[in-house]
Design a protein around this nucleic acid. Structure first.
Lengths: 228, 228
DNA sequence: CTATAAATATGACATTTATCATATAAAAAT
DNA sequence: ATTTTTATATGATAAATGTCATATTTATAG
């Protein structure tokens, strides 16, 4: 039973370049894992020796600082690969990967990936492009961190979460993050994040219902995120 | 006359994986350019259609913000490749590349690189690893921007400039940056950068002689950069 | 070599953001 | 259901950093 063929990761990630034969090879070597919200897929410093495909759920890549704050570098959703960077660099993971919502992931051993990389030009190009995409995002994030205020970054992040993960039937954002996690994405103190969310709420840019957030005025949020 | 074979870029960059035949092919397709200090190799938004090898000099990759500040993402020195990311992503450059010191660069057309990428696994792996290295650096920079103070980042940057570019006979740093450029690297206002340099000078951590900077107390700078 | 512009330096002040304290609400455990 | 913990919220304050003004020095152009 070749389950990988129908898998969303196979449709969306670099793996889409694999041919039938390669997918069968993949299906035989992969292992499937369920990760509960809050649990780690791998921790900073760990040697993973392969990549993880996100079949379902949402994960965060983050790094714990000396002062105890967890800086979130990227959120990943179904269809994406995790741990490519450290596998390719032959290094222990630079970041920890944890589940923000219950996840289902498949582990693909490094040997398989390297085999595909060496024998399938389209695959290696896809993988390369995916790392390049991450690099571009990271560089742009870096610039935003310096050039925008916390308020602007919060607005930007809310819009991005909406774009990337969508909304539920009741218009609330699909990703449910704690205030602490949200602060970890925009790079600020938890209290500042909470405060600004309250402000946005009062200004009717968003609506807060417990942990759930509704973007009420996307236009105004966009304006806020971009203004000088 | 096959000049590429002896070139420093060939010895240090992903190109080291090329065989004799490939180097000859490379030598026939490359073009050499001299770039004066301050001039651009390419500008943000430009389609480059190839990569640039840095034979000599120092360059900066930066992005101009709406408020007129130039955020420097990376400095490059001889032996490195420029413009890989946007070439691979098939996108116009996300950043501008300008000379910080007079440069000599060679342009290699995209078609050549793609040919090597598809026919030489070691080259494609090298290129991949080089982008991964950039990604790791960028992610770590991002985290430092959030978790460290401007003072710490200045100390860190001075140490990094010393490590990466070395010093002259008179112990001054080899890279000569304006205060504005230095501010653009650490992500702060020019005035704040100047002020902190003065402080460091008074504390005898560094010595200022015009634009030239000497690191007088590396140990103390390291301690400053890492402390909580 | 002078005139002009640009870079560096420093003070005064405003603003942003972090930190600490504490209250309230929500979630988890017993 | 009640206790205990954890998350959210908000005020007060301090610290860090940006902005504006203005010298002073250094570089560049004529």
């Amino acid at each position: 039973m070749n389950k990988c063929d129908q898998c969303i990761v196979r449709q969306l990630s670099s793996l889409k370049a694999l041919n039938k034969e390669e997918v069968i090879k993949l299906a035989n070597s992969k292992t499937t894992h369920k990760i509960k919200k809050g649990e780690a897929i791998f921790e900073e410093g760990e040697v993973t020796n392969g990549v993880f495909c996100v079949k379902d759920g949402i994960g965060k890549l983050s790094k714990l600082s000396a002062n105890g704050k967890d800086q979130i570098v990227k959120l990943v959703k179904s269809g994406e690969l995790l741990g490519q960077r450290s596998m390719i660099s032959n290094e222990p993971a630079n970041l920890s990967a944890k589940a923000v919502a219950d996840m289902e992931v498949c582990f693909i051993p490094k040997s398989e990936i390297i085999h595909f990389f060496n024998n399938n030009n389209q695959f290696s190009m896809n993988l390369m492009q995916s790392v390049c995409e991450d690099l571009k995002d990271s560089e742009n994030d870096k610039i935003a961190l310096v050039q925008k205020t916390v308020k602007q970054r919060l607005a930007e992040t809310l819009l991005h979460l909406h774009d990337a993960f969508g909304e539920n039937a009741d218009k609330t954002l699909k990703v449910q993050l704690t205030r602490e996690e949200l602060a970890g994405i925009i790079g600020t103190a938890t209290e500042s994040c909470i405060r600004l969310l309250s402000d946005f709420n009062k200004l009717e840019l968003i609506e807060l219902a417990g942990k759930k957030i509704v973007l009420k005025d996307v236009k105004a949020l966009k304006k806020l995120a971009e203004q000088l």
